[in-house]
Amino acid sequence: MSETHLDQLSKSPGSDQHDGHDGHHTGIPHGTFKGYMTGFLLSVILTAIPFYLVMEMPIPDAQLVGFTVVAFAVVQILVHMVFFLHLDPRAEGGWIILALVFTIILVVIAIAGTMWVMYHLNANMMPVHDMPGS
């Protein structure tokens, strides 16, 4: 919201005030051939490396490989969002990105919270096989 937007409202209350809709009725984000190919090539690389790391195990440290694989996944998700889903922070007046950020917060709370609670629940449980008489 800027002052120019307020000016437009006061000048032409009856006309089309949605700058995003002018001559672009469906609001469909356009991709380009170059964009799709860039996204595809990046995805191929970002997929091939984690599969190679796990299937061939060139690095014997499983924990390090695990972190690397997750890092590649995060980058690849971003690549898909930008090149395939055409995520634009300004699209639909910012509501798309707002809904996405809100969802990411909920996803993080749900997954991290679940793991945190369930891990502690597990760790604090008395192991069955250590109980006397079992």
Binding site: L6, L9, S10, P13, G14, D16, Q17, H18, H21, H25, T26, G27, I28, E92, W95, I96, A99, L100, F102, T103, L106, V107, A110
Partner: peptide, 30 residues
């Protein structure tokens, strides 16, 4: 200065479909 339009702005058919579908996808994500 008017802070809101005098009448409901006219939305062309399907203009909110993309946002609505995106919100469906976000719920699917959950």
């Amino acid at each position: 200065v008017e802070f809101h339009p005098a009448e409901e702005p006219h939305h062309p058919e399907g203009s909110s479909t993309m946002l609505g579908f995106w919100i469906y996808l976000m719920s699917d994500c959950l």
